Amino acid sequence: MCDANAMGATMEAAPFAFSCAPPFLTARFSAPRRTLGWSMLHPGFSIVRDIVWVEVRDRDLPPEVDACAFLRAKLASIGLPQALAFMTARDIRRHHFRQSRVEDVEAACLTTVGLSNGERVGARKPFRALVGTINTLIHVSRPLTDGAFVEAISIAAQARTAAIVETWRPPAGPAITGTGTDCIVVAAPCGGEPMACAGLHTAVGEAIGGAVYAATREGVEAWALDMARARGASTV
């Protein structure tokens, strides 16, 4: 359960600590947070303290393997069986963190960005398992109502897409707006008076957009550089 009395995080305090020890990238809050997203093990609204990125390869998940069971086993192996988790084939050492403060609200974003599973909204390609994807965690310093959580998700998605469209053009085909396996999770304190709105006209919406855009853009640029290096190595 979420302890409301433990949730008075100040603007100066770091929203979460994170560490990278491949194949895991782990973020831990100082106390449980309420979350909204579509992660495999904690879809919808949930209360968690730990968020884990798990780097995987095709050989880890052949068709006969239950992906959720695989993920639970991975989390249990590091003593975090209740964690919210992402899976990605992106090198998780390529993670990106940015913060944005607007008025009395602070947003922080931690993301990994891979685009080999790129899609354009309104069209889709044949499904490809375990390819590069975008997994994004956003923390806001103020509690949110259910409606504000939903607005926050929409702002994060807009910021992610703007960063992709403005930074990356596939070698062939139209610009992409995301990947087929993207996941976004918004986290906020459990206690206190919740903010009722988180749209583009609000301070929290601006803070979320700024943090997500900056982190995603940096991730896209890193992805493009890695792909250019890989193409160059393949021609040597």
Score class of each variant (00 low, 15 high):
residue 202 T to E: 11
residue 137 L to C: 04
residue 53 W to V: 05
residue 2 C to H: 04
residue 167 T to L: 02
residue 109 C to K: 00
residue 90 R to E: 15
residue 164 I to T: 03
residue 106 E to L: 09
residue 201 H to T: 06
residue 103 E to R: 09
residue 207 A to P: 00
residue 3 D to P: 08
residue 233 A to E: 11
residue 212 V to E: 05
residue 197 C to E: 10
residue 7 M to G: 15
residue 140 V to W: 01
residue 83 A to N: 07
residue 32 P to H: 02
residue 157 A to D: 10
residue 148 A to W: 08
residue 114 G to I: 01
residue 108 A to Y: 00
residue 110 L to D: 03
residue 96 H to C: 02
residue 207 A to N: 04
residue 41 L to Q: 05
residue 15 P to K: 05
residue 123 A to Q: 14
residue 137 L to A: 02
residue 214 A to C: 12
residue 69 A to G: 14
residue 2 C to E: 05
residue 36 L to C: 08
residue 154 S to T: 13
residue 141 S to V: 01
residue 130 L to N: 10
residue 149 F to I: 05
residue 40 M to S: 09
residue 155 I to R: 08
residue 126 P to H: 03
residue 104 D to Q: 11
residue 198 A to F: 04
residue 70 F to S: 03
residue 3 D to N: 13
residue 102 V to W: 01
residue 90 R to C: 15
residue 232 G to I: 03
residue 180 G to I: 01
residue 217 R to C: 03
residue 163 A to G: 04
residue 193 E to Y: 07
residue 90 R to N: 09
residue 114 G to W: 02
residue 74 K to F: 00
residue 195 M to Y: 08
residue 211 A to E: 01
residue 147 G to Y: 10
residue 119 E to S: 14
residue 112 T to C: 07
residue 171 P to I: 04
residue 142 R to E: 09
residue 41 L to S: 06
residue 234 S to A: 13
residue 181 T to I: 09
residue 146 D to Q: 13
residue 100 S to I: 01
residue 100 S to T: 14
residue 111 T to Q: 04
residue 48 V to T: 14
residue 36 L to I: 12
residue 206 E to C: 09
